[in-house]
């Protein structure tokens, strides 16, 4: 049998102590006379009782300090990545105009397919849509691996630009691609590959 309709929804709140004084008194009186509602009440009360008897959960003793350290480490990495991105944006903007010119040259050359293949064979980001490519460096933090294409592009440009002093050929290669034919371009890619890897 089902508990009385009038009281059914109030019994859970009676169990949790959330009825007003008047409602609670009415419920107590009703339970004394209605066996079905009494059984329903005892079932719900037992469930809540079982839950409340479970031991309290406390984190391990040193958890608070460990959590602060872990969070601060993650935030330091995040700030570094943000600085990278911010630094890369002006570089990205200033390069864009030039890269568009490069792209036109590359698309005209009809050699884009080969270039894509090159990027797949090596861990290079496919920049062929703008006539540029860069080394992809996976993020240290697994939480940061879900990068958008734009983030990868920025990251790759950052890598190239920052490493420019180490690889002086790179910038010259990029600039040169605007006016190269296919064979010369392949030669430069080969040269870049040698310089970077």
């Amino acid at each position: 049998m089902k508990p009385c309709k009038e009281f059914e929804n109030r019994i859970p709140l009676y169990v949790s102590g959330d009825l007003s004084d008047d409602e609670r008194r009415r419920m107590t009186t009703h339970l004394q006379h209605c066996q079905v509602c009494r059984q329903y009440h005892s079932a719900l009360a037992a469930i809540i009782d079982t839950m409340q008897q479970e031991p309290e959960i406390e984190p391990p003793a040193s958890y608070g300090a460990e959590l602060v350290i872990a969070l601060n480490n993650r935030l330091v990495k995040r700030r570094k990545n943000q600085r990278r991105a911010l630094w890369a944006i002006p570089a990205f903007a200033s390069l864009s105009a030039f890269l568009i010119i490069t792209a036109v040259s590359l698309f005209k050359s009809g050699d884009n397919q080969w270039f894509e293949q090159f990027n797949q064979e090596h861990i290079y980001v496919n920049f062929s849509s703008v006539g540029y490519f860069g080394e992809f460096v996976p993020a240290d933090d697994p939480a940061d691996t879900d990068l958008s294409t734009e983030d990868i592009v920025k990251n790759a440009i950052y890598q190239i630009v920052e490493k420019e002093p180490l690889y002086p050929e790179v910038e010259r290669c990029v600039i040169a691609t605007a006016s190269l034919d296919d064979a010369e371009f392949r030669q430069l890619v080969y040269q870049m590959k040698r310089e970077i890897l």
Partner: peptide
């Protein structure tokens, strides 16, 4: 939540009425 929990316990053969 409480109603559903009771139903699920009953379906599992766990009777809280007897506790």
């Amino acid at each position: 939540a409480l109603k559903n929990m009771r139903k699920k316990f009953e379906a599992m053969g766990v009777s809280y009425e007897t506790v």
